[in-house]
Design a binder for these strands. Structure first.
Ligand SMILES: [Zn+2]
Ligand SMILES: [Zn+2]
Ligand SMILES: [Zn+2]
Ligand SMILES: [Zn+2]
Lengths: 130, 130
DNA sequence: ATCGGTTTTGACAATCATTATCAATAACGG
DNA sequence: CCGTTATTGATAATGATTGTCAAAACCGAT
C-alpha cells in the first residue's frame, strides 16, 4: 500500500508553491534551501508518482529536461512556459485540439495523441534579457 | 567557411536511408556496421548542423533522447508519427503556427518556440491492432 | 502505546546521452 | 603543392536520471 510521508507532502507543497514548471533538481535545491533534508532520489520518486497519479503534469523541456508542475484541474490542457524562469500560463486550445484530431484522421491514423507546448520568455525575463 | 567532408555526407546518406526518426547513437552504430570509421562526436555535430540548416527534423523522444529524420521540404513543419512502427507524415499547419505565435504574444512572451507533435497508429498498424 | 512486516528513504554508485578538449588531420583557395 | 584553418575523433568531462541496499519510517494489528 502507498504510505504518507512528510517527504512526499513536502514535494507536493513545493510543487504547489512553484510558479510554474520546475525540474526535479531545482525542486530539490529549493527544498534544501528552505531547510528540508529531503534526498534527491526521493524528489525524483515523488514527482514520478505524482505524475503517474495525475496530480502533476510533466513535459520535456526543449533541452530535454523533465519538468513538473502541480495540476489541480486534471483535465486536458496545454501550457505557455517561460524558458528562463519556468513561469507558466495555462492555454485553452479547443481549435488546436480539433486540428490535431482532424489531422490524424485525415491520414488514417487512429488513437491520436499530441504534444503541444509553447515556450518563450515571459515579460519579466524579456525585460532582463534586453 | 563550411567544408565538405565525406563524414557529413555519410551522415546525410544514413539519415536518408533510415526509415523514420533515429537517434545519434543508432545512426552512429549503423554507420559503423556498414564499415564507416566515423566518430560518434562527428555524428552528433553533423546532425546538429543538419537540423540547424533545416535539412533534418529533430524531436525529443518520450525518454528524452534527441531523434532526427531527413527532411525533404526544408520549411518549418510538424509530424504525425506512428507510435508503433515510426512511420512519419510531414504536416504543415499555418493556422497552428499563427495560433502559437499569437498565444505567446497575447501573454507578452517573446522569442516564442513550440513543440507540436501528433502521435497515433498508422492505417497499417491500426489494422493489425484490431 | 508497542510490535513487526513492509514500504520508503537517502547517500552513493552506476548509467547513459551529450558536450568539451585538443592534438592530429584534411579541405580548399591561391 | 602549400599554408591556413575548419574538422575530426579518441577520450574526458558533464549532468540528469536511475539503481542499490542498509537503515529508518509508516501503519495496521495487538
Ligand atoms: Zn520568466
Ligand atoms: Zn491538447
Ligand atoms: Zn505504424
Ligand atoms: Zn510550427
Amino acid at each position: 500500500m502507498k504510505r504518507n510521508t512528510w517527504q512526499r507532502q513536502a514535494v507536493r507543497d513545493a510543487l504547489d508553491g512553484a510558479a510554474g514548471f520546475v525540474s526535479a533538481q531545482d525542486l530539490h535545491a529549493s527544498l534544501r534551501e528552505s531547510g528540508s533534508p529531503i534526498g534527491l532520489a526521493t524528489v525524483y520518486r515523488a514527482l514520478a508518482d505524482l505524475a503517474g497519479e495525475g496530480d502533476a503534469d510533466s513535459l520535456q523541456s526543449i533541452e530535454g529536461e523533465s519538468l513538473y508542475r502541480a495540476c489541480a484541474s486534471g483535465g486536458h490542457h496545454h501550457h505557455l512556459i517561460c524558458r528562463s524562469c519556468g513561469t507558466t500560463v495555462e492555454i485553452e486550445a479547443d481549435d488546436v485540439e480539433q486540428w490535431a484530431a482532424a489531422t490524424a484522421a485525415r491520414h488514417g491514423f487512429t488513437a491520436p495523441q499530441h504534444v503541444i507546448d509553447v515556450f518563450g520568455l515571459c515579460p519579466a525575463c524579456s525585460r532582463k534579457a534586453s
